[in-house]
């Protein structure tokens, strides 16, 4: 029952994201300059931001970006981790790399006429590639454990082909870890995008993302003025809880 509800919510959110142009009443970058900081209700469902942009429309478009790109990046990381986890020294090396500087260098090398969408795509792609070492380390530890396990030896003693052993016996263990890692990485990437935004590597104006909408929460007093500023946070938490429920 809860699982059904959770998947229904996820599907609803995904549909909203997919049909953003139809659902959002306004363009995400339309500035109603006569109504900055408008309160919720009336023409603006969740009010407007400092430039008079409709918060609801921005949230819908931001969802579109974050809900597609963050899981995609997380999936890339987990897949890479699975493929590369056997190279434990490579994992250690990658864990010790100062990624933030690589991101800065990447941004510095990127042509300036890279559009906002291309650059956000690139940012998430890089996060996906850069993030593989964390899950890899976990895979590595559990693969080591699996190697020592009695059931693997038993499976070998029964004459099962190694591929079959990997698929039937080993994969269920790795899949559980992969799912858990995926669940950890999705919100981590959404938040990383927000903090990368602070050093200029996130979504550029005027594109909205959960990250840069969340960044508004840095000013606590803004929330009392318009509680709908919390909406992206609420949505993020809802999606995370539903993901948890569905993949459990």
């Amino acid at each position: 029952m809860r699982r059904k509800l959770a998947s229904a919510i996820l599907i609803l959110v995904a549909l909203c994201a997919l049909f953003a142009p139809a659902i959002a009443p306004f363009d995400y970058d339309r500035q109603f300059r006569e109504s900055p900081h408008a309160a919720a209700g009336g023409q603006f469902l969740m009010g407007t931001d400092n430039l008079g942009r409709d918060r609801f429309s921005r949230l819908v478009y931001a969802t579109r970006i974050s809900i597609v790109l963050a899981p995609a990046a997380a999936a890339v990381s987990v897949l890479l981790a699975l493929m590369l986890s056997r190279f434990s020294s490579l994992t250690t090396l990658c864990l010790s790399l100062p990624w933030i500087f690589l991101f800065i260098i990447m941004r510095a090398l990127l042509p300036l006429d890279t559009g906002p969408f291309a650059s956000i795509l690139l940012t998430f792609a890089l996060m996906g590639v850069a993030g593989w070492a964390w899950p890899a380390r976990i895979f590595n530890a559990s693969i080591r454990q699996i190697r020592q396990s009695g059931w693997l030896l038993q499976a070998r003693a029964s004459g099962m082909p190694s591929r079959r052993i990997a698929l039937i016996h080993v994969w269920p263990h790795l899949r559980a870890i992969a799912v858990a890692q995926f669940r950890v990485l999705v919100p981590a990437y959404i938040l990383s995008e927000a903090s990368l935004g602070l050093i200029g590597l996130g979504v550029a104006e005027p594109l909205p993302s959960w990250g840069n909408l969340l960044a508004e929460l840095q000013r606590p007093q803004a929330v009392s003025a318009n509680p709908w500023i919390l909406a992206p946070l609420g949505l993020l938490m809802l999606v995370m809880i539903c993901l948890e429920e569905v993949s459990a």
Binding site: I104, R107, A108, L112, D113, S119, G200, A204
Partner: peptide
């Protein structure tokens, strides 16, 4: 106009 935010150093 394409807005690009850069870290101060770069």
């Amino acid at each position: 106009v394409n807005i690009v935010t850069l870290e101060m150093g770069s």
